[in-house]
Simulated assay, not measured.
Amino acid sequence: MSPAIELVDVTKRYGAHHAVRGVSLTVEPGTVFGLIGPNGAGKTTTLRMLLDIIRPTSGTARVLGRSPRDGGPALRRRIGYVPGELRLEGRVRGRSLLRHYARISGPVAPGTIDALAERLGLDLNRPVRTLSKGNKQKLGLIQAFMHRPELLVLDEPTSGLDPLVQREFLSMVREARANGQAVLLSSHVLSEIQQTADQVAVLSSGRIVAEGDVSSLRLGRVRHVRARIAGTEEGVRTTLQRVPALRELAIHPADTSLHVSATIDGDIDPLVKALAALRVLDLDLESRDLEESVLQLYGPSEGREEVRRA
């Protein structure tokens, strides 16, 4: 069985600006592939080249065994797509709009549209122009999933969705994978990638700077630490500096205690053991957002020749 997506040394250049620089990746059927990275990294450009919305300057792209440029409507009907900037307007009701999309995309099994709308909590009888951003996003998800395409290309698909709907969306992605569909998911939400993706590529400045699974790329291991600790500054600093993964340690006196902030990149157990030797009055531990994690671990890719593969 051929790959659902195969990019080989694909580049997109606008004049002197390189939006994508020699990207190569493969997405197999029945897998979820996560594409992550900071804003401006080239994620949306990469996805649009797969749909022939824009065309690469150089390199080779194949989608479901066909060139996007030559595949035409027949290829596009085999793909479900949610753009990063979904624009839906008009007086037409949601149900009528989805019926229109169904005539374009191909057969939709009876009851599928209503079942998806119920899962996502969307009223299909409301005019599209009256829907909130989140409800328009639900409409976009339904049109992408409803004809059970062989490939789903999803660009920031949970933008505007509340946490309960995000959870239902992740269930839909897992079901698509179980049905043998391929999913290419671009996201800024690291938890989405952690819960669904089989493989991940990290883009920075148009290049893939790391590729593997989420755990091997250590994206969830960079966290902020904030604490209020009783004791002397010298004693607290000496204790915490023994934690090998602790970075950016800052200690500031405040009344009768010390405010401590740091970043930990790695195993948290040594930090817990170090804190156990101190009198901790308050503690807050939070994951860095995706962009911080990517830049902390890999930095800008300008001039980088090697691609790290986990």
Rank of each mutant, 00 (worst) to 15 (best):
Ala16Cys: 00
Glu233Met: 13
Leu184Asn: 03
Asp289Leu: 00
Gly235Gln: 02
Val225Gly: 00
Arg242Thr: 15
Leu25Phe: 13
Pro29Ser: 00
Pro157Val: 08
Val153Lys: 01
Ser58Asn: 07
Leu285Phe: 04
Leu64His: 01
Gly42Asn: 12
Gly266Val: 04
Arg129Pro: 01
Gly134Glu: 09
Val209Ser: 11
Arg279Phe: 02
Ser215Asn: 13
Val173Pro: 01
His147Thr: 10
Gly84His: 06
Ala210Glu: 01
Arg126Tyr: 04
Glu211Tyr: 03
Leu249Lys: 02
Leu190Met: 14
Ser159Gln: 13
Leu50Arg: 05
Leu275His: 06
Tyr14Lys: 03
Glu302Asp: 15
Pro244Gly: 05
Ser215His: 14
Ile79Asp: 07
Leu203Val: 10
Pro68Cys: 12
Val63Glu: 03
Val222Tyr: 01
Leu7Pro: 06
Met1Tyr: 09
Pro29Lys: 04
Gly111His: 09
Ser216Gln: 14
Arg177Ile: 06
Leu116Ser: 09
Thr263His: 06
Glu292Met: 00
Ile104Asp: 11
Gly235Glu: 10
Val214Ala: 14
Val92Ile: 15
Gly59Ala: 05
Ser205Thr: 13
Leu154Ile: 11
Glu306Phe: 11
Ala74Val: 13
Gly22His: 10
Ser159Leu: 12
Thr26Arg: 15
Gln143Ile: 05
Arg218Met: 02
Leu88Ile: 11
Pro29Phe: 02
Glu302Phe: 07
Leu246Asn: 01
Ser205Asp: 15
Tyr298Ile: 03
Gly22Phe: 11
Ile104Gln: 14
Leu86Asp: 04
Asp255Tyr: 15
Ser187Gln: 04
Asp70Phe: 06
Arg218Leu: 05
Phe145Gly: 01
Asp284Val: 08
Gly206Cys: 09
